[in-house]
Design a protein around this nucleic acid. Structure first.
Length: 632
RNA sequence: GCCCAAGUAGCUCAGUCGGUAGAGCACUCCCUUGGUAAGGGAGAGGUCGCCAGUUCAAUUCUGGUCGUGGGCACCA
């Protein structure tokens, strides 16, 4: 007798081993019809899985969220099957589930073109409708290798060959198409309805640039058509808030061919920049940082000493003049160390926190450039803390507090935290790395922050904590980071006099909150969709007169607001009020002041908020009170 | 750097199956002085990314190149 306990606590008993599908059937025919798979004692299994002993079972149907990944994975297989039917010579590689969908990488002589996507998608729908059964088979590793070799799928052979030889391999078969897979999958292709192929891309085999470039097809798949439609609409909406698009509309900045990856800031964008920079500067003061400024060009020897030349020389811009070779600084740290090294520093002075709005140049790979998110010239809100080992944890914790204070001010709340550990190529002993990684983890735990460990992703001189924010279509960008560095002070000879009079090397913390100001502004543009809060808005108020008669009065109002410290523009153009309101609303100015004969007669203005709400008539001397609560 | 796609007016885009291009908005001028998201008229504006090749003729075809977009790789 097999007893199967269901999520509601009910137990069903069966005399013989029974498939999940048949358990569902035993409950109701309609349940069986919708069953995609099951979770047996916490493990995902196919609907065809035969239960042989007592267990807990959750049946997953088309309505359960758990079904989503299975559907996506099965859709990836459907994609591969369609591709094989259309282009038998193409080799399949891997096709995992990703956020919102899946991809599948193919190896082919001739890359796909956009037109192929529609063709392939059509084929997928045809196959899905044929209600093709998806069956699991098991094979020994060696038989699996023989099998895939026999059908000439060399990538599959390569994958299986890396699995230990005593393992059993599971394969999934649908029609003539067989793929190596752990599963589970939908019972048949008719469950796959709401999907769409999204885009083509190149991708290296096993993510290694020295390998062959494969052809990747990205797709999205959902439980139902409504979810798919929602997702597509979300993407359309997200596209509207792309920082590059809004920057054009609001004239914030532009980029042009002659300066790839370098930004021309327009008056509005530069205003925004200045506000942010000034705010960060105030935070420096509040948190005990000293602001400095260091050279743009520094002799190559300093970069050799720091170790950067060795690792990054190809990505550095350099200049040769008077028989000396300089690099345009790709980072500020070695320069800050030079400032630390001036004079003799006592342990009593530590920690010393130096900060700079440091403009750096890196010759990033052409394909890496992305609007102002990834540029060749960027400005870091860079800071370096020189401290003793005992002070590390406290400094890291204080930094984390400062970072979250800043992000909250900008309205950024969805922050992913990652701890990156020692990479393959690194300097410094394992002892030091152990200590460094541990102290960062301690600080995070102390702050009760959930974080993900990124194995091997640390900088070559030390581990780091990274803070990531997402852009409007879900791409993650690193903004803040704090990196621990025991090496650079040694390499560059930074020392302090310790309590016992001996000289010691300080520990160095590299830290940034915005990361790159360019990137941070890009994120802010998308986060606010260009509708900045009052304190950030490049233009806070626009003054609009109804007709020429009130032009002079409008200018008086403008002067009053200027004197109060507001950034305001006046529009006395020969246009109707409706036109002006439309114009300045599209410019996303937080407040519009409307002035006609009525307002002029009693020294007042009518205030219209960006969202269209008419706030009513206010005395000119009271206008600023309306802005209170919006942080002037 | 690699794979794919598209570079046309300030912006968003159409177009030329090879005969030097068009719309809307924006801009300039005129009329209109109008009360909460586009009043009307006229005008100006383009070496069709750049360099070659084929051709009587190239914005259109071919090759290269530069920058951009989507991915991959990279990200001190």
């Amino acid at each position: 007798m097999i007893n199967i306990k269901l999520p509601d606590g009910a137990v069903r008993s069966f005399g013989d081993p029974i498939s999940i599908h048949n358990v569902a059937k035993n409950i109701s025919t309609s349940l069986a019809k919708n069953t995609i798979s099951g979770i047996v004692n916490g493990e995902y299994k196919d609907a065809s899985f035969i239960i042989e002993e007592d267990c807990e079972l959750k049946i997953i149907t088309i309505k359960d969220g758990e079904a989503l990944d299975i559907i996506r994975h099965s859709t990836a297989h459907l994609l591969a099957m369609a591709v094989k039917e259309l282009y038998p010579d193409i080799q399949v590689t891997i096709g995992p589930v990703i956020e919102h969908g899946f991809y599948y990488d193919f190896s082919c002589e001739k890359p796909f073109i956009d037109a192929d996507l529609a063709l392939i998608e059509k084929k997928m729908h045809e196959l899905a409708k044929q209600n093709i059964a998806v069956n699991r088979k098991e094979m020994s590793r060696d038989d699996a290798i023989k099998y895939f070799a026999s059908i000439n799928e060399k990538y599959k052979v390569e994958i299986i060959s890396s699995i230990p030889s005593d393992n059993t391999i599971s394969l999934y078969e649908q029609g003539d198409f067989v793929d190596l897979c752990r599963g589970p999958h939908v019972p048949n292709t008719s469950f796959l309805k709401a999907f769409k192929l999204m885009k083509l891309a190149g991708a290296y085999w096993r993510g290694d640039a020295t390998n062959e470039m494969l052809q990747r097809i990205y797709g999205t798949a959902w439980l139902n058509q409504a979810d798919l439609d929602n997702y597509i609409n979300m993407l359309i909406e997200a596209e509207k808030r792309d920082h590059r698009k809004i920057a054009k509309q609001l004239s914030l900045f532009h980029l042009q061919d002659e300066a790839p990856g370098m930004v021309f800031w327009h008056p509005n964008g530069w205003q925004l920049w200045q506000i942010i920079e000034q705010y960060i500067r105030e935070m420096y003061i509040k948190h005990g940082y000293l602001e400095v400024r260091t050279p743009q060009l520094v002799d190559r020897v300093l970069w050799e000493r720091s170790g950067h030349w060795d690792k990054f020389r190809n990505d550095m811009f350099s200049i040769e003049t008077d028989d000396r070779q300089y690099a345009i600084k790709p980072m500020n740290c070695p320069c800050h160390v030079q400032i630390f090294k001036q004079g003799l520093t006592s342990y009593r002075q530590l920690p010393i926190r130096l900060a700079e709005f440091g403009s750096c140049h890196r010759n990033e790979a052409s394909g890496a450039l992305h609007g102002i998110m990834r540029t060749r010239n960027f400005t870091q809100d860079d800071g370096h803390i020189f401290c003793t080992e005992d002070q590390i944890q406290m400094e890291v914790m204080n930094f984390i507090d400062m970072l979250f204070e800043v992000y909250a001010k900008f309205g950024l709340t969805q922050i992913a935290v990652k701890l990156s550990t020692r990479p393959k190529e690194r300097i410094g002993s394992d002892d030091i790395w152990d200590k460094a990684e541990q102290s960062l983890a301690n600080a995070l735990n102390e702050k009760k922050l959930a974080f993900e460990i990124m194995q091997g992703e640390g900088a070559f001189y030390g581990p780091k904590i990274e803070f990531e924010v997402k852009d409007c279509i879900g791409r993650s960008w690193t903004t803040g980071s704090v990196q621990l560095d025991f090496s650079m002070p040694v390499r560059l000879g930074a020392e302090y006099v310790s309590e016992d009079g001996s000289k010691k090397h300080p520990v160095m913390l590299h830290r940034a909150i915005c990361g790159s100001l360019e990137r941070f502004i890009g994120i802010l543009i998308e986060h606010h969709a260009g509708k900045f809060p009052l304190w950030l808005a490049p233009v806070q108020v626009s003054i609009l007169n109804i007709s020429e008669k009130q032009a002079k009065y409008a200018m008086e109002v403008q002067k009053h607001l200027h004197d109060m410290g507001y950034r305001c523009k006046i529009d006395t153009s020969n246009e109707k009020i409706g036109y002006k309101i439309r114009h300045w609303t599209l410019q996303k100015v937080p407040f519009l002041l409307i002035i006609g004969d009525n307002e002029m007669a009693n020294q007042s203005v009518t205030i219209r908020r960006l969202d269209g709400v008419d706030l009513g008539v206010f005395k000119v001397t009271d206008v600023h009170k309306t802005f209170i609560g919006e942080v002037p």
